Amino acid sequence: MRLSWDKAGERLYETGVDRGVFYPFTTGGKYGSGVAWNGLTAVNETPSGAEPTALWANNKKYLTLMSAEELGLTIEAYTYPDEFEACDGSAELAEGVTIGQQDREHFGFCYRSLIGNDDVGTKHGYKIHLVYDCLASPTDKDRSTVNDSPDISPFSWEVTTSPVDVDDSKSTSMLTIDSTKIDPTKLKLIEDKLYGTADAEPALLLPSELVTILES
């Protein structure tokens, strides 16, 4: 069959960011109940590593080694959950009073991006991104006077990640679920776990737990 390009319904693109969820880290490599992250404006992925190193022998290239790949993020938002303060180096000294420069706690994170096409736009589908073992670094916080050109001072955090184990694969810091390719029934089970239900708290799924749902 001869190849064709840009057929109707196949002109795909990704856009947007929404449904951010913060999951506090607990003991034993587990995560606590998720909290909705309101005011999320951007999540920028910044992978690093995976750089080639050439080894030479007998006056020619012998082989190429690749360094490990790491995942970093930049999270931008107009606000953040109160539960995130411990991950931003803050601790409550008394009710309504916090102090900074404290040890930063690890956390898990989940957000969604939209998949659009030329037929139905962003109703085509979405991707859910699960990010594990995050650690936020201190970043600048700019404040300016109120004036005749009103604006909001957004927050921004540089985030590093540490990978978690994946059976029969290399460890990873991110797992992505594509709603256009996964069984709708299993997708609902996954979203009920991630976002919670009337009877269950929202929880971040580890790769092994996700595989259990997909294989059930």
Rank of each mutant, 00 (worst) to 15 (best):
Y23G: 03
G125A: 12
N117L: 01
S153Q: 14
G121D: 02
A42Q: 12
L187Q: 02
H106E: 13
K188T: 15
A57L: 11
L73W: 07
E83L: 11
S153L: 06
K188M: 11
Y13I: 02
G9T: 09
D167W: 07
I152T: 13
T161D: 02
K186I: 03
F109A: 03
Y23H: 01
E209N: 05
Q101C: 03
G108Y: 02
G49W: 04
V43Y: 06
A57G: 05
Q102P: 06
E92Y: 11
S169K: 14
Y126A: 04
A57N: 09
D178F: 01
A8L: 15
V146Q: 11
K170M: 13
D142P: 00
Q102M: 12
S137K: 15
K141V: 11
T212S: 15
Y195K: 08
G20C: 08
A36I: 14
D119P: 00
E191Y: 04
G108S: 05
K123Y: 11
K61C: 12
P52F: 04
S113T: 15
Y13T: 01
T41R: 12
Y132Q: 00
Y62T: 08
L40K: 06
T41Q: 12
S179P: 04
V146F: 13
F84D: 07
F25S: 15
S153F: 09
G16S: 08
